[in-house]
């Protein structure tokens, strides 16, 4: 893992400032293409350090009910893959936070891996988070991201062996996505203890930038995760706020979640 990526430097800067990074997830096209762009900008203006933009997909096996409902609606409203690049470009013109695309693998394959990398880079995107692509199957993406200089975020799970963790660390650039618990996305009352252990094991395998995701929905949980990890990723809670109360509510939640970074610093 090299530290030349904007994502990695943003995380490093937050860690050096005494807290860690807040990563916010939103699907493109929910509640509308423009709405998702405005919401992403509002997240950054309210303290989110890195954006994770999800591309709606017909068969999202890692997603829980809240995100499924939002992405299904975006698809029903006519989401097209190109909208992802449109959103990245529009957001990048307004805020400077690194923008990662979270996408299942088949849409990238059908678009063409190299073409996808080129267009994402041209739009100002930072890289990809690939929930159903393991490094073992990723050779075309490793080559394309290397060529274009995009970040590539692979997942690490509590059940992964040390050898597999090392593989994820070596293949990733930007950060490694530590799956906090065995399961799919969705808010949880307690962020699993397993996350703490996993982050420790990733460090032993050489990770210098690890963000924890899945199940984080409150400022207190953000603070708790930032005690041991470099970043905390919030998804379902933001999507729910956006669905219930629009861009304003999403921004308010982001501001609230960002207080978790202060809590972490004073802890």
């Amino acid at each position: 893992m090299t530290a030349t990526s904007a994502t990695a430097s943003t995380i490093r800067a937050r860690v050096d400032a005494g807290s860690g990074a807040l990563v916010g997830y939103l699907p493109v096209g929910f509640p509308s293409l423009g709405g998702s762009i405005d919401a992403a900008v509002a997240l950054v203006e309210n303290g989110v350090d890195i954006l994770e933009l999800g591309l709606p997909y017909s068969d999202p096996v890692m997603d829980g009910p809240v995100i499924q409902a939002a992405t299904q609606r975006a698809l029903a409203d006519g989401f097209r893959l190109r909208d992802g690049f449109t959103a990245v470009q529009a957001i990048a013109q307004q805020v400077s936070a690194p923008i990662l695309i979270m996408t299942y693998w088949n849409p990238v394959v059908q678009f063409g891996v190299d073409r996808f990398a080129d267009e994402l880079a041209a739009a100002g995107g930072a890289g990809l988070i690939t929930p159903d692509l393991i490094p073992d199957e990723a050779s075309t993406w490793l080559d394309a991201s290397e060529r274009v200089g995009l970040d590539r975020v692979f997942l690490a799970a509590p059940s992964s062996t040390d050898a597999r963790l090392r593989r994820s660390v070596e293949a990733s650039r930007g950060f490694v996505y530590a799956v906090s618990t065995m399961g799919i996305t969705g808010a949880r009352a307690d962020v699993d203890q397993a996350a703490r252990g996993l982050v420790g094991r990733l460090r032993e395998q050489g990770a210098d930038s690890t963000c924890v995701g899945i199940g984080i929905s409150t400022a207190a949980q953000v603070a708790e995760v930032l005690e041991y990890a470099d970043g905390a990723i919030v998804g379902s809670a933001i999507v729910k706020a956006l669905g219930d109360g629009g861009v304003e509510a999403a921004g308010e939640l982001a501001a609230e979640l960002a207080t978790g970074k202060q809590l972490a610093r004073s802890a």
């Binding site: 890692m62 693998w105 199957e137 692979f154 690490a156 799970a157 059940s159 992964s160 399961g183």
Partner: peptide
């Protein structure tokens, strides 16, 4: 063929 699944399933 292959194994295009989340890392969480690889151990299983």
């Amino acid at each position: 063929g292959g194994r295009f699944v989340p890392e969480s399933l690889i151990a299983a």
